[in-house]
């Protein structure tokens, strides 16, 4: 999809009332700002978008991802220690680590020990893992915005 179609959401120029010869050039951040935004977006969900003034996305990402991790901890989920000895522990660790500070702060405070006998244990773990996976996607989104691939 070219830049014009990207800007018009895939619509043709006629449908979107955009002149056919219009070429939309999205702003492109330098490498340093890109790196800072990606790291910020990793540590605090939504902060990378906030640096590019994408306030709506920043707010939604911060609220949803943080809420998922806190719900996971509150529902007796386990904030697993980083463990790379096997496929599933590795995937779990990657998901956890990518959650950023909402994972690291409770983990360092000793919260999120997990109670396997709780009814909500399994669901809570899914909340925590999915929050990390979603944060990976938001960091990729920040990278695309920074490189001018996405508005």
């Amino acid at each position: 999809m070219d830049a014009q179609n990207r800007q018009t959401g895939g619509k043709t120029a006629e449908k979107a009332d955009v002149p056919a010869d219009l070429e939309v050039v999205l702003p492109r951040a330098d490498a340093a700002k890109t790196a800072v935004a990606c790291v910020a977006g990793w540590l605090v969900p939504g902060l990378g978008h906030a640096l590019f003034r994408k306030w709506d996305r920043a707010g939604v990402f911060f609220c949803c991802i943080t809420a998922m991790i806190l719900l996971g901890v509150g529902l007796d989920g386990r904030l697993a220690d980083p463990n790379f000895g096997g496929l599933f522990p590795t995937l779990e660790s990657i998901a956890n680590v990518w959650s950023g500070l909402p994972y690291w702060i409770p983990w360092m405070l000793g919260a999120g020990v997990g109670d396997p006998t709780a009814y909500t244990y399994d669901y809570a773990n899914k909340f925590i893992w999915v929050a990390g996976c979603l944060n990976i996607l938001t960091v990729i989104d920040v990278f695309d915005i920074a490189r001018g691939r996405k508005p």
């Binding site: 959401g9 996305r57 939604v60 990402f61 998922m68 529902l75 899914k126 999915v130």
Partner: peptide, 24 residues
């Protein structure tokens, strides 16, 4: 709980993929 999970995940994915209120 399934509903909470669905709402939160859908919200994040929606804001990642779509632009504009109506499409979202």
């Amino acid at each position: 709980m399934m509903l909470v999970f669905s709402v939160l995940t859908s919200l994040v994915l929606t804001f990642l993929v779509k632009q504009g209120a109506r499409a979202r």
